[in-house]
Amino acid sequence: MTAGTMEQKMQRTSSDVPSEKPDAELSTTVPKVIEARHVRKIFAGAHGEPAVVAIDDISFDIRRCEFTVFLGPSGCGKSTTLHMIGGFEQQTEGSLLLNGQAIRGPGPDRGIVFQDFVLFPWRTVLGNIAFGLEMMRCFTRAEISERARHYVEHLGLAGFANAYPSTLSGGMKQRVAIARTLAVQPEFILMDEPFAALDAQARDRLIVDVSLIANEQNTTFVFVTHDIREAIRLADRILVFSPRPARIVESIAVTLPRPRDAYSAELLDVDRYMRSLIGTGPEG
């Protein structure tokens, strides 16, 4: 493999994204929607335990409609970063801006999908998908029902609208959670290891479906995973996190069109390249 062919599929932007020169390679006409500058997160130790530095000085930019993947080992602080973007946690130091504004808490502009699905067991599939719409109170009953039904179809849940979550497989449950998130048409979709609890088949199908959704939707995705193959099949850009305390050690752009065939020669090349990169990373 020559450096030239590699270049077409991915660009290594910088090893430590500096605040002065963010991502010169990416189109500068697309506005930055998330800007993190020197973000640190320290969890105070409970019951006299020492404080834990979860995130040690990270800076990055995310541009509109970009599919960004935070890739890193388990417990490295990538989920915490996602939770801070979601407004569920706050950074200890540094600034984290969403459309130029400091994040003050969660909001309907940011939908979140968790590894453990987080459905409400007393609601049907349709009821779970309608949940966000009902909570927002700016839709009529008819609108809620129509939209929820649309996303039932869209996520391949037709025939399960009136089923309760306990009767569904993991893959189906995660489809419901994704549909609930899409239903309110958020500007951002945050996904926290969404496929980690699924079997290989369900995961594969969902990767393809999320790829299609990302292509058609005017949405910025931030996706957390520890799985290289998930990252390279989905991402426009991969931010590689070091083990805790988190730093961003690589920023890699992947320019192959989605959905990507997991076993195409090109993707296997990217895979090999990623593994060599992470293998030679400072924390290895």
Partner: peptide, 20 residues
């Protein structure tokens, strides 16, 4: 996480209590 999902849509406290 259920509480997070509940809080994400900016609903009133009362609505959150009733629905979740």
């Amino acid at each position: 996480h259920q509480l997070w999902v509940m809080r994400a849509y900016g609903a009133s406290e009362w609505r959150q209590v009733c629905k979740v």
